[in-house]
Each structure stands twice: as C-alpha cells, then as structure tokens.
Amino acid sequence: MSTTADVIVVGAGIIGAACAYRLAERGLKVRLLEAASAAARGSTGKSAAGVRVQFTEAANVLLSWHSIQEYRQMPEAGYRPTGYLFLVPEEAWESHLRGVELQRGLGVPVEVYGLEAAQRWFAFEPEGLAGATFGPADGVVDPHGICIEYLRRARSLGAELHLETELLRAERRGRMWRLDTSRGAFEAPVVLNAAGAWAGEVGRRAGLNIPVQPARRMVFATAPLPQPLSGPLTIDLSSGFYFRPEGERLIFGKSNPADVGFAEGMDWSWLEPTLEAGMLRFPWFERLALDHRASWWGYYEVTPDHNPILGWMPGVEGWVNACGFSGHGVQQAAAVGRLMAEEIVDGRARLIDIDALRYERFSRAVEALERHIV
C-alpha cells in the first residue's frame, strides 16, 4: 500500500521544514521523508549559525533579508544581531563597494569602515587591506530551534514527518510520483527535493541530474578564554579565514575547496593551514588554545556557481528543487519556505524574483557567481 499526499518533501532539515510548514499553511497534505533518525541532523545541526545580508547577488541579499525579518519575530530562532565584519583586500575594494551599493539599494543596512575604525572589536594586521564593511542586522541564530519550530507548526497543520525513511528510488507514473523508501511506498503529484548535501543523490535515484555535491567543512573551537570576547563574525576576504565569539570561546574556520564528497569526521590536518591564515591577519590567535572536543564538522551542499537551485525542474513534471545553498541554507530558509509554497500552489514564486536561481541557468553560457562565499 502506498501513502499519498499532495506534496512529498524529501529532507527534514531547516529548508524542508520551512517548506513543509508553508505548504501545509496553504492547505496541502504534506509528508516529509527523512533518512536520519531525527530532524536537523545534517547541515542544519552542524551549521556555524550565521545570518547575513552581505551578498553580491540581489536574489541572495533578499533571501537572507526576508528570512532575518522572520527570525526576528521567532523566539525559537534565538536571533542575535551581532553583525558580520568583512575585511576587504585592496584589489577587491572597488567591486566590494559595488556590492554595498546593491545591498543598500535593496533596503538592507550596511556600513563602510576605514581600517582603524574596523578595529573597534578585534585587532588585526591591516597590510593589503583597503577597508571593511559591517552588517548591523547580520548575526547568529539557533538553526536547530528554527527547524524544530517549523516542524511543530507544520505538524499542527496536518503535515506528517517520517523518520528513518530513506528514498531508494522515484519515478513518475502518470500524474503521480511514486517514491519507494526503506519504510514503504509514497505517492504524490509533487516532490520537493530539500535533501541538502544528499540532494544530488536524491536526484540520481529519480533519474535526474541535479548538480549538488557535498563538501566537508571544519569548525574549530578554542578553549574557554580568560576573558570572553564579544563582537561580529569577522571574515578576512583575502584568505577566507573567519571567526566569531561563541559563549566563552571563539569558533573559527576556513573552507578547504578540495574537501568534496561524503568524507566523515574531523580533518585535523586542515587545522594548520587554517591557523596559518588566521595568524597572518590576527597574530593574537597564536596565544589561544584549541579544544578538540568542542570542534565539529559538517557538510555544505555546493553547486557549480555557489547559488541555490530553486523552483520547478525543467522538462520534469511535478519535481521542485530547493537545494544547493552552498552554506547559506540556514540564513535563507524562511524566505525559501514562502517562495516554494508560492511556486507549488500558485505556479510561480512571487515574493522574490528567483529566475537567476532556477535550474535553467546551467544551460546558459554565463552563470551568475556569488562572490561572498565563506
């Protein structure tokens, strides 16, 4: 016997949870399939929890800005506007300021600082830098709290969550998708792929080519500091090194572009190049001790242009993608939930123009590249 619904959402991370809530809010019968034994066990639960509006593509700016507005109203989100500080190298300063102009034109707050003023929070070596930008509405949230609250809201509206339910294969049969899983068969006219780092594999099991692959990321944590620090998540754009205060500690990291695929566990060999990059800009990092037990790892879900894939799959009836966020899923989930409900119920998303993020862009000669990737 197959279980039927109006929409089947694959993945119960923060994106799938937000989409399920908004779809159920529109009166649809929704079922969420999650391969893990609990929700928010993938990228959501392993996120560094930052939210920011400082992007270079309009769609990304608006996705984050609309989401931040929603998180501000959610006690479960734990939103704290601690800010993001970008330290910008000389060769990128002109293009970075064009990004600031775009952000301000879209109505989001961004401030420009000289190098001396930017050291109001943390000291750094200014060599090679031209200036800094600060987003006062940027900050941190509780991704797990947001995800669980969206799931609670979805279930209160009739949505059903099926844990330990791995998608094995999917095929279109007439007007319905049939999904064979480890817990039986499900049928629905619409499938929403919100499987995070597994979104590419979910596509393959449906016979679809969805260019999303996992990329492992390390988040290192210091031992408790003698005196806790406060300030923004700070990013040195010349190296990609970032850090932010987290309670009595600092957490920090730097993406390894070669670390792709489903490798598991901490890559301690990446600590040395990460610290080398950090100490060049922040020499005081040399005095900090590391806490191995407080450090963790997780997956980004990356696309070729580091932008998400949103909306109907071209040439495939009833398949919708909301995946490939390349590290930005937590900060954009609230808006994506609303957009996917519009896309599925109304036929097209309206809240934000997502045409630049649709699958069709991969067939064009030029792809929009988001420059602010951390």
Rank of each mutant, 00 (worst) to 15 (best):
T165C: 15
E272K: 15
D142G: 06
G298M: 12
Y300C: 03
A12C: 02
E286L: 08
P143A: 10
E370N: 03
M74S: 08
G337N: 11
I146C: 15
R204P: 04
Q119I: 07
M340K: 13
M218Y: 11
T82N: 14
I210R: 02
G329E: 06
E70C: 05
P214T: 02
F262H: 10
D6K: 00
E342N: 08
P109I: 07
R361H: 09
F122S: 03
I309A: 00
Y299D: 00
A123E: 08
E276H: 04
H292M: 11
G78Y: 14
A215W: 04
R155S: 12
G27R: 14
D259R: 14
A368F: 11
H328C: 07
I148Y: 12
N193W: 12
L225A: 03
Q227I: 01
R173M: 05
G311I: 04
L250H: 06
R98P: 00
A154N: 08
S363L: 11
L102S: 05
L97N: 03
V7G: 12
W177M: 11
I210Q: 01
F282M: 04
R155M: 15
T181L: 10
Y300H: 13
W93G: 00
A349F: 05
I146E: 05
V212T: 07
A185H: 12
V100G: 02
P228M: 08
F186W: 10
V345K: 11
S326T: 10
G240H: 03
S295W: 03
G298L: 09
P143G: 13
L288C: 01
G107W: 14
S2T: 10
A35F: 01
G196K: 12
L97W: 03
L157R: 15
D353K: 10
E201A: 09
S37P: 03
I15C: 06
A118W: 01
A92V: 00
G347H: 15
K46P: 00
D346F: 13
